[in-house]
Design a protein around this nucleic acid. Structure first.
Length: 620
DNA sequence: CGGATCGAC
DNA sequence: CTATGTCGATCCG
């Protein structure tokens, strides 16, 4: 039975309004009082209304999930399930790896402390980096005592802390500092993984061995060096995997370090009382979803293991079991340039309804994106328009091309086309993003032929990245062969050619379950909303872009179908799977829809399979 | 694939 | 008055 009391609803809303980073380190005196002030300042705004709507949707989602849970539990043999889960836990436990020393380093209030370096008058003051009318990127520790947080709008922060000082952002300065500290970290692990400009993961196993150092001394030394060379402080967590190290770096923040014993029992008791919200990947939404089935701490995962087992598709059984045991990946390596997936730009402005003005914003964004792509050497094949209504609802619309795009004109024209399908709209944000990228800088090696020439496995030069076609002269990028264009436009399964090109066999298993056992198999929970779109969505645009959803060949087919066709059943052939059937128009359409989604899913699986192969090939 | 959601910094 | 920007992952149809 759910408890949909009004008081509970507003409680979750008030918490939501407090922002996503309330869990972070900060000496909040009285969080409920802070939350009250925030809710008070928010009331009546469009932002507030939107948050209220999202909160309501989530509450409904939870209702559906709980009902599903009750149904499942009624018919389940709980003890049997628990035995099964216990067995899984034993297997996970048997593969626990405590051999690697992983460190998560995290600069303390990075932007704020850099600003303090450059303006010592700020020392001891409550200040935020950002504008009164924008959003704060960082808050000094003095400001955090008032409940001021990163990501908080300036005017709310001002309400919480009336004497708050607003300091301008100097991103270039932070980047320079970032480079300095990263260089220091790299001396302890040349293969470190920088996660943003103020933190990173290191595997110091080898360094400690080579220098006969304990992990504690090594990390102390490293932190002292950062402090000596930059005057900035850094906190660190030492643990056998990335998840634990990350949680530990928060323990003695600021300017401290925490070493979790590399022993099973110590790790289990550490996890037992740990709030589920501390787990990387679990944010506000999943915290609420898990709380609804009784899970607040990682210890609760075991208590409710039967429920978690039954609700696997909502929460991810493997992920939660591993989390309960404190098991996670200990693989530390940098993200390679060629692994980049997207590049984009977006801008917020005071709400606009005028077409000319909005198009001007779109053009600015297009210019920004062009410059960015030019500077970093990328072109892309799919353009996604993102827009946020003045109600704060966000939508995306995408369009793919048969060539690589990067020029302002292409970005703007196609962005405009996507936007005009939605007209009229009143917007507060507009953005463009390119995906399906091509790395223009990987075009070094000559002597490589065009796609369709029967090339062997492509250049072994760069560390294998087979999903992308390598090496074309930049000039060639926009001049794509005719065969290829045809393929892209008319064949639903055209991607297969890419894979053949790369020398990969296409094998889709009958039962394509993602292979467990491998250490990377688990994922944070990712539950689906029960309702895709809220009822009061957007003020009715023209069409829901019906034909644009499907490949052109499909649209054509549909048209042909609709044209001359009686209602009675007759023999027809599905254009997707080739199956023939006796059905009427709507029956065929239903089958086509099924087939389309099925082929989309298969495509996704091919891509994912492809990615797996890439990963295997990449491992040194 | 396109669209929506969630999460991290 | 006033609520970011950029990216990756995942799920669904």
């Amino acid at each position: 039975m759910s408890v949909p009391q009004a008081s509970q609803d507003t409680a979750s809303l008030v918490k939501r309004l407090a922002g996503p980073s309330v869990t972070k380190a900060g000496l909040a005196k009285d969080q409920t009082e802070i939350n009250r002030i925030i809710a008070e300042a928010s009331k009546g705004s469009k932002f507030y209304d939107n948050e209220k709507r999202k909160d309501k949707d989530l509450t409904e989602r939870i209702g559906v999930i709980l009902k599903h849970r009750d149904d499942l539990l009624r018919n389940a043999d709980k003890s049997k399930i628990e035995r099964t889960v216990d067995h899984m836990l034993t297997e996970l436990e048997a593969r626990r790896d405590l051999s690697q020393i992983i460190v998560h380093v995290d600069m303390d209030a990075f932007y704020a402390n850099v600003e303090m370096l450059d303006n010592p008058d700020l020392k001891g003051k409550a200040f935020g980096v950002g504008h009164l009318h924008g959003v704060l990127t960082t808050a000094s520790y003095e400001a955090r005592k008032f409940g001021v947080r990163s990501g908080m709008p300036g005017f709310i922060a001002k309400k919480l802390c009336p004497d708050l000082i607003f300091v301008d952002i100097h991103f270039k300065r932070y980047s320079e500092m970032s480079a300095v500290i990263m260089d220091i970290f790299k001396q302890y692990d040349p293969n470190m993984y920088p996660a943003g400009c103020d933190e990173g993961y290191l595997n110091i196993t080898e360094y400690c061995r080579a220098h006969s150092l304990s992990a504690d001394i090594c990390v102390q030394e490293m932190r002292a060096r950062v402090h000596r060379e930059t005057d900035l402080t850094v906190s660190a967590g030492i643990a056998p995997n990335k998840m634990l190290a990350k949680i530990c770096s928060d323990k003695n923040k600021p300017n401290g370090q925490f070493h979790l014993p590399f022993e099973r029992d110590a790790i289990l008791s550490f996890m037992h009382d740990l709030s589920i919200r501390k787990i990387p990947g679990i944010g506000r939404v999943n915290e609420r979803l898990l709380e609804s089935i009784g899970i607040k701490t990682c210890g609760d995962i075991y208590t409710y293991r039967a429920t978690v087992y039954l609700m696997d598709k909502y929460f991810g059984l493997q992920f939660l079991l591993r989390t309960h045991l404190g098991i996670a990946s200990n693989n530390v390596e940098p993200v390679l340039r060629e692994e980049r997936k997207s590049i984009g730009a977006e801008r917020t402005f005071s709400p606009l309804g005028d077409k000319e003005q909005i198009l001007k914003k779109l053009e600015e964004v297009a210019v920004e994106l062009e410059n960015d792509m030019q500077k970093t050497g990328w072109a892309g094949r799919t353009l996604t328009l993102k827009y946020k209504l003045d109600t704060y609802q966000v939508f995306t619309r995408a369009k793919s091309f048969d060539r690589w795009i990067s020029k302002k004109g292409d970005l703007f024209m196609n962005g405009k086309e996507l936007l005009m399908h939605e007209w009229p709209v009143k917007l507060r944000l507009i953005g463009l993003r390119m995906t399906k990228l091509k790395d223009l800088r990987a075009a070094e090696d000559k002597g490589i032929k065009r796609f369709f020439s029967a090339a062997g496995p492509s250049s072994p030069a760069k560390r294998q990245k087979m999903g992308h076609r390598e090496s074309m002269e930049p000039e060639e990028v926009l001049d794509v062969s005719d065969e290829y264009q045809e393929d892209c436009e008319s064949m639903p399964g055209y991607e297969e050619h890419e894979f053949e090109e790369a020398g990969l066999a296409i094998e889709i298993p009958d039962d394509p379950i993602t292979e467990p056992g491998d250490t990377g198999s688990s994922r944070p929970p990712q539950s689906r909303p029960s309702k895709p779109i809220s009822s009061a969505a957007k003020p009715m645009s023209k069409k829901p872009t019906s034909t644009a959803q499907k490949p052109r060949s499909m649209a054509t087919q549909e048209k042909d179908e609709g044209g001359d066709e009686g209602e009675g059943g007759r023999s027809c052939v599905c254009p997707i799977c080739g199956k023939s059937m006796e059905t009427d128009n709507s029956g065929l359409n239903a089958h086509i829809d099924f087939c389309l989604s099925r082929s989309a899913i298969l495509e996704a699986q091919v891509e994912s399979l492809n990615r797996q192969k890439e990963r295997k090939g990449k491992k040194r």
